[in-house]
Nucleic acid binder design. Sequence first.
DNA 1: CTATACTTGACTGAATTAGTTGGTTATTAC
DNA 2: GTAATAACCAACTAATTCAGTCAAGTATAG
Lengths: 168, 168
Amino acid sequence: MRLTTKGRFAVTAMLDLALHAGEGPVTLSNIADRQKISLSYLEQLFAKLRRGALVESVRGPGGGYNLARPVDQLSVADIIIAVEEPIDSRQCEGKENCLGDGGEHRRCMTHDLWESLNDNVIQFLSGVKLSELVQKQRTQPVFGPASLMKIRPGNTTKRRPAGDIVVA
Amino acid sequence: MRLTTKGRFAVTAMLDLALHAGEGPVTLSNIADRQKISLSYLEQLFAKLRRGALVESVRGPGGGYNLARPVDQLSVADIIIAVEEPIDSRQCEGKENCLGDGGEHRRCMTHDLWESLNDNVIQFLSGVKLSELVQKQRTQPVFGPASLMKIRPGNTTKRRPAGDIVVA
DNA sequence: CTATACTTGACTGAATTAGTTGGTTATTAC
DNA sequence: GTAATAACCAACTAATTCAGTCAAGTATAG
């Protein structure tokens, strides 16, 4: 998984779409205007989102895009995976002979190490559903930097410093 | 936070460094040989790691790099933040007037939304310490794709599919 | 003094990002 | 049917980042 502004754009656009769901198809021009994203760039992103079966399109006047699934079944991970093409993350293509270390371990650690670290991040972002973002956005349109901190349970390992507000 | 191969290289290199700690300073040439990373690219990365006070350098013959902190106080997040320059993540530079939505909410959602999502990922990666990676690497040099899945507690929300092995 | 090894800076080709231009289809409204 | 709408599609572009090269330094051990 990669994590760039591209994914951010996509998440933003999808959140906008979710916020206006139920009002019929949403046009990309509308999203472009509201979120200040280039229309043609949005088209590229939505081509991928459509291929990934995250959105459905309606052509012609009155057309636009709809979410292909309910908001609680669409995660941030889904979106990012759909738009960011996958990463290589190994320079040994499955071979077992990529060490000059003295032979302590047979496979290079790079591969599996990051692969699993990756899985963890994906697991995490899969837990953040569009529905949660919509709800936060609706109930609290203007919020401080810490208001979404507590979206997921599971970060109970660490006490956050005093200034932070837990919303959940 | 960004997440590219650059950060991967850095994490790999730091893990290599950690694995050879206690044997005196480690040279970049050694890391380059073992991990098959270009020496000059490593130099760039370690320049940033040094500025970020994650490593200390010893010049001259017999020199090299040492970790600046104990392995249990060095997280994956520290490394990635040090080498990947920060992302913009807002197109309204703190202004309050970035909507054409009809004025429902005053600030554009993009900014705070991703900011806090970001914080969550950082929080998560901050929990993965070098010491854990070293230990996994030492006790189980060759491991399957699922062996690091359970590094962190906290993903108890979701049952993983049957094939996966939990190591922790 | 000399070899080692870190340090710095400028520079490069390739890839990716973000965006543009210019079309073509499909569908609705008139 | 024809005009308007809006998704689709392909090629092309400027700017940035990635990954790596090259060439100089400077500090230190022996």
